[in-house]
Every structure is written in structure tokens, then in C-alpha cells.
């Protein structure tokens, strides 16, 4: 039985310590946050503040040295590599600053990739990929283009469509506008806002204060600790 009122992301006293030679670096030093379903959260912080480490924790890409991370009420500390992969696959859509599309695949194939790992049939995943590209506002004439034949904004739209492919409850964006001009960046943020209003939890990690205006909640992080 699932508790209907659990937060979608929950961190309890999370520490992440890197050891560099004899130095111990506290990337996260006792972070406790909880993010509710349907929220639009901005995690703000300058570089080196620990915000990327926090993003990796939420994205099931890294595990804490101590403390507890729960995504969709699943405790990550008990999972192995493939277990974490499964959580990612079903719960989290990643949007990266560098877009990170697979260069050998066309736009539509890039969107199909997460569905392949989820075992969807070829016909079904093609249909869904088109639907997602529409949702991400990519003109469909670009569907058969390779990433290097598209503009940054178009690539980010493909990446968003890919993130949406398995219909995850959480979209996790790492500096999504960082490689885009202001106008395109605004459009991408508007798109994320739209997706949020249709029920998806959106978490944006950034150092850009301008992105704050799109979110409901802001979490500021500094020197590995939440300051606000």
C-alpha cells in the first residue's frame, strides 16, 4: 500500500563526502529537503555549491555517503546499479545543458531510446515518439534529422521529448537554458512550465536567477547546505 501523501522526492540529512588525497570535501553536508508532487522547484546555487551533487542524488546517478534519499517513496540506498537504472527509467526524465542526444540517431530515434529500454514494441514507440515531439513543440519535419542538423533549441526540444518518453512523474533539468540564447531559453522554460501545469513535477538546477520566476519553490544551496 502506498501512502498517497508522501513527497515525490525526499532527502533526509544527506551527506556526500569526496576524498581527494587526504582532503575530505563535503559536497553535501546534511541536506534535508522534500519536494511535493506537481511542484516546480528551482535549485539555485553558484558553481561548487553542491547543487550538481544534489541533482545527481535526486536523479539516482549517485548515492549519499550517509543519509537517506527517497524517490517516489523508494529508498535508493538498498538498490544496485540496475535497480537505480530501473528507478530512473520509470520516474525521471533528464534534461541536460549539453542536450546529450545520441549523435548517430535521428530526432525521433533519440526519443524512442528510453522506450526501447522499457520494452515497448517498435510500432508503439514510434507513435509515442511522434506524440512527444509534438508535445515538445518540435516541427515534425525535423523528426528524421540527426542532432548535428538541428539548432540548439531544437535539440533541447528533442531532449525534452526524450525525457517525456516513458511519462515519468519527475523532469530533472540541469541548466536547461545554459547553452541557448535568451529567447530560446525563455521558450524552453515556458514549455517546462506547460508540462508542469499538466501534472509533471519539474526540478530545475541552475545558477541563473532569471529562471526563478517560473518556479513555485526555490531551494538555495551554498557550501553543501540548504540556506533557505
Amino acid at each position: 500500500m502506498q501512502d498517497l501523501h508522501h513527497p515525490i522526492v525526499e532527502l533526509q540529512d544527506v551527506k556526500r563526502i569526496y576524498t581527494l588525497g587526504t582532503n575530505r570535501i563535503y559536497a553535501l553536508n546534511g541536506v534535508s529537503i522534500s519536494i511535493e508532487k506537481g511542484d516546480f522547484v528551482t535549485i539555485m546555487g553558484s558553481s561548487g555549491s553542491g547543487k550538481s551533487t544534489l541533482l545527481n542524488m535526486i536523479g539516482c546517478l549517485d548515492l549519499p555517503t550517509s543519509g537517506k534519499v527517497k524517490v517516489n517513496n523508494v529508498d535508493l540506498s538498498r538498490l544496485d546499479d540496475d535497480g537505480l537504472t530501473a528507478i530512473r527509467r520509470n520516474n525521471i526524465g533528464f534534461i541536460f545543458q549539453q542536450f546529450n542526444l545520441i549523435p548517430t540517431l535521428t530526432a525521433i530515434e533519440n526519443v524512442e531510446i528510453p522506450m526501447i529500454f522499457n520494452g515497448a514494441s517498435p510500432a508503439k514507440r514510434r507513435k509515442k515518439a511522434i506524440e512527444m515531439l509534438k508535445k515538445a513543440d518540435l516541427p515534425l519535419e525535423f523528426a528524421e534529422h540527426k542532432p548535428n542538423e538541428m539548432s540548439g533549441g531544437q535539440q533541447q526540444r528533442v531532449a525534452i521529448a526524450r525525457a517525456l518518453a516513458n511519462e515519468p512523474p519527475i523532469l530533472l533539468a540541469d541548466e536547461p537554458t545554459g547553452n541557448l540564447d535568451t529567447r530560446t531559453g525563455q521558450n524552453i522554460m515556458k514549455l517546462l512550465k506547460e508540462l508542469n501545469s499538466s501534472g509533471t513535477t519539474v526540478i530545475v538546477v541552475t545558477h541563473d536567477p532569471k529562471l526563478e520566476e517560473y518556479s513555485h519553490t526555490t531551494i538555495r544551496i551554498q557550501d553543501g547546505e540548504v540556506v533557505e
Binding site: G59, A86, R88, R89, N100, L101, I102, I113, P114, F117
Partner: peptide, 16 residues
């Protein structure tokens, strides 16, 4: 390497 990372981030298991 980076592509493998992307694949894993979007849900590829070791077996995949």
C-alpha cells in the same frame, strides 16, 4: 563513454 552515460541516464541497464 558519454553516450553510454546518456543511455544509462535514460534507462539502459547493464545488460542493454
Amino acid at each position: 563513454t558519454k553516450e553510454i552515460g546518456i543511455m544509462k541516464a535514460v534507462g539502459a541497464s547493464r545488460k542493454d
